[in-house]
Structure formats: C-alpha cells, structure tokens
Design a protein around this nucleic acid. Structure first.
Lengths: 151, 151
DNA sequence: CCCTTGATTTGACTCGTTCAAAACACGGGT
DNA sequence: ACCCGTGTTTTGAACGAGTCAAATCAAGGG
C-alpha cells in the first residue's frame, strides 16, 4: 500500500515523507475527511503531526491532482482521493455525511448552462442536498442535530 | 419601492426597520453581494449600521425566504433576492463574479442522482466554474488576480 | 556522504462569521 | 395619541477554519 503511495507521490514530483504517507492513509480510510479528522487520524502514525503540516500536505496533494478538495456550504472543506473522474456528491443537511454520485456524463463539465453570460465554463459542480438514511429517522421532531461525524 | 419591501417584510411576519430596508435596497442594486458589500452599501442610507446588524438582517431575510444565501467554495457568502425559482450560478474562478443561470427544469431538485445511496434529496445545487468575459483577456500571463469586486 | 531544495515545524495572525447581553424601537392594543 | 411587550439593533467579545512567514529539518540526486 505504502509502496503505491510512494510511487504516486514520486511520479507527481513530490518527495515521499511520513506526513504525506500518513495523510494518504487516513484519506484512504475516510474517503471524505476534513482537515481535523485527518490530523487526528494521521497522528496514529505520526503523533507530533501539526495541523499546519496537514494543510501543507493537502495543498500539495490537491495541486498535483492526487487529491480533490470539496467545500460544501457551511462546513469545513473535505478531501477525497477519488480524482480524475467527474463525480458529484450527496450531502446530508443534518449530519454532514457525504456520499459519492457517479456523473451521468463522464467528462467535466458534465452540464452546460443554457446561457453562459460570456463565461468560459470548465467545470459543473453538482451537490445534492438532502437527508441521509440515518438522519431521516426522527428528523421531524429533532429539527436539527447538525454536527455529527462526517464519515 | 420601499413600499414594496415594507409590504413583503410585513407579509413575512417581520417588522419594517431601517436596517432591513437599507439591506434590501443594496441587494436590489447588487444582485450577488457579500456581507461586506452590503454593509458598505447600506451605510449610504444608514451610516451607523454595524456588520453584526447586517448579519442579523440577512439571517432574518433568508429564514423567511425573502433572500437566498449562496456560498461558492473559497469565497465569502453571497446573498440574492431572486428566490423561489430554482436557478443556478456561474462563478468566475479569477474575480469571483457571479451570474445567474436559469435552470432547465423549473422545480427543485432539478436533477436526480443516479444512485441516491439512501439519501432523500430535496435540492440539486449546480455551480458552473469558469472565467468571466473580462477575466478571459490576459488570463494566461496574469495567472490569478482573485479578489476583484464581485458585481 | 554531502548538498541543494523542498518539506515540516512553530507561532502568530487574518478573515468571515457567530454568540451574548444590554439598549432600543416597531406597531398592536387601549 | 400613548404605552407596553417583544422583536431588533447595538456593542463587544469570541470562535473556527484556514493562511502567512521564518527557521529548522530531511529527501534523495550527485
């Protein structure tokens, strides 16, 4: 496993370091993790890891295309390793859980606006908002219980 | 004009106050304004207006459905008065300019994911990313000039 | 094994936004 | 027209997520 990451990092022109391997491992286990989750998780392998380092690692991974950053409105940014395919997300309004959705059309942008207003569009980002299975139960009386652990 | 806002506010069960009318006027002139733009603009009519008050007004307007909040990734939240129709947005990666896009299908959610993963979806949010007309010129050499005035 | 350069660390700091308590004023009732 | 209750505004502090900068450290090519 780590060998794979090592190869991918080097192929991307990045040095292979412990923080990077740790972050990649966490991302592998948590497909939609926020920075805090990654810091906590990566400290299992690298206890002295600082949040700033994680931000640095994530920025490096995103900039070379090994990771993708998604920013659902009103929540901290999430990172995922599934890149290259043009897929979208289902986000739970209640607990923030995220699930992947394959895009009908493979390439980005998968949709075209009816009127581009002079813009040159390179990506269509789609977010489906709703309630995940767990939050549908008792969503009526509990009004909102935002803040659960995004898995 | 103000009479219209007065009626709409009252119909929504909100009291008619100067901060609210000022914010509505700014929103009318700047269809996609962020909180800061609104504070600055509203101070033309109400010089002592504080940012916190504007946040309060915006929250009130959004909660009764008179305004809508949009949060493009990596930028402060924007507010618009165009509500009720299910429309989407074009966002310029360079200057942050936003333009409305009519949705092909009128009602929300206008799209359905291929696999809902158990989610009950109530809205499909679509953001088209690209370059606005102004930023297309010289976008090659200037790399990025983010931070312009979103109109 | 050394050296260069990129990566990590440490710490301070910014921005956008939210929270809380006190002062205020909209507008329904009389 | 006035008063009063409750919704609003105000003031001020605080928060979380993320960024910036300088110094230290280590990956890995030579």
């Amino acid at each position: 496993m780590e060998t794979t990451w090592t190869h991918r990092l080097r192929k991307a022109g990045l040095r292979v370091t412990r923080p990077r391997l740790s972050v990649l491992d966490v991302l592998d286990a948590h497909p939609h993790a926020d920075a805090d989750t990654i810091v906590t998780g990566a400290r299992a392998q690298h206890p002295t890891l600082s949040p700033q380092t994680v931000y640095g690692v994530l920025e490096a991974l995103v900039s070379v295309g090994l990771a993708r950053r998604i920013e659902p409105a009103g929540a901290p940014a999430l990172f995922e390793l599934r890149v290259g395919d043009n897929h979208h997300h289902l986000v739970c309004r209640s607990c923030g859980a995220v699930a992947d959705v394959d895009c009908a059309v493979g390439a980005a942008p998968c949709l075209s606006p009816s009127d581009t207003a002079g813009f040159v569009v390179d990506e269509a980002e789609v977010v489906f908002w709703g309630l995940c299975r767990r939050c549908q139960v008792g969503a009526a009386d509990e009004s909102d219980t935002v803040g659960g652990t995004p898995a």
